[in-house]
């Protein structure tokens, strides 16, 4: 699993639960080191061991931990860069949903060895969508669920989502858009850091 994903788990734990919690997680995971590097590649088993540690230390089921991570990645000011990159996907939540097919490609464009599961959006009507995710070793769908919820907030859209598992490890998120302009959402300036 790419270091970026492992450091996401790391900064999530540290920012929300503190350095001690992270030390405990790594203690449980027993990997022989205490910090991940964003630009190195790690074994999938190591990531799974950290997730196991997180379940124990945070006393939450894995699905909930993963969903919290997805939300954290978009809504925490300390990881603002990912939220900004996602916002380049579209000017409103619908355009953003329609850009998700390209998300793995966009990720690869930024970091060539960052592999995300295949994503496919089905559009049933203007307010009814479903995102199907290819198989992943860590339950990526739950992360996406938290991430989509936070992105809907970011765009000011009101949505209802439902998670489901499909055959062969694939996952599916059903999205119902109740209102596109429910709140004003957060602002997004193209020039980001410059402006």
């Amino acid at each position: 699993m790419h270091g970026l994903i492992n450091t996401a788990l790391q900064s999530f734990t540290r920012d929300i639960y503190g350095d001690d919690a992270w030390a405990q997680v790594m203690n449980h995971a027993d990997l022989g080191f205490s910090e991940f590097e964003a630009m190195l590649i790690y074994e999938d088993e190591q990531t799974c061991a950290v997730l196991g540690g997180l379940e124990l230390v945070l006393r939450k089921p894995r699905e909930e931990v993963l969903e919290d991570i997805g939300t954290y990645l978009v809504s925490n000011p300390k990881v603002e860069s990912l939220r900004r990159l996602l916002r380049f996907g579209g000017v409103n939540f619908i355009e953003f949903l329609q850009s998700l097919d390209d998300l793995p490609g966009r990720a690869r464009l930024a970091v060539s060895d960052l592999d995300l599961p295949v994503m496919e959006l089905s559009e049933y009507s203007v307010e009814h969508y479903a995102l199907t995710l290819g198989a992943s070793s860590v339950g990526f769908g739950h992360v996406m669920l938290g991430l989509l919820r936070a992105m809907a907030d970011d765009y000011g859209a009101l949505v209802m989502m439902e998670y489901g598992e499909l055959a062969a490890g694939r996952e599916r998120i059903e999205i119902r858009l109740l209102e596109t302009d429910f709140t004003e959402g957060r602002s997004f300036h193209l020039g980001g850091k410059a402006g």
Partner: peptide, 21 residues
């Protein structure tokens, strides 16, 4: 242009991570 801006930001973030490593 929008894709270019996305790339500028994504690449700077990746570069920053590499630099700190």
């Amino acid at each position: 242009t929008i894709e270019m801006l996305y790339l500028i930001e994504a690449k700077s973030a990746a570069m920053e991570a590499s630099r700190s490593l």
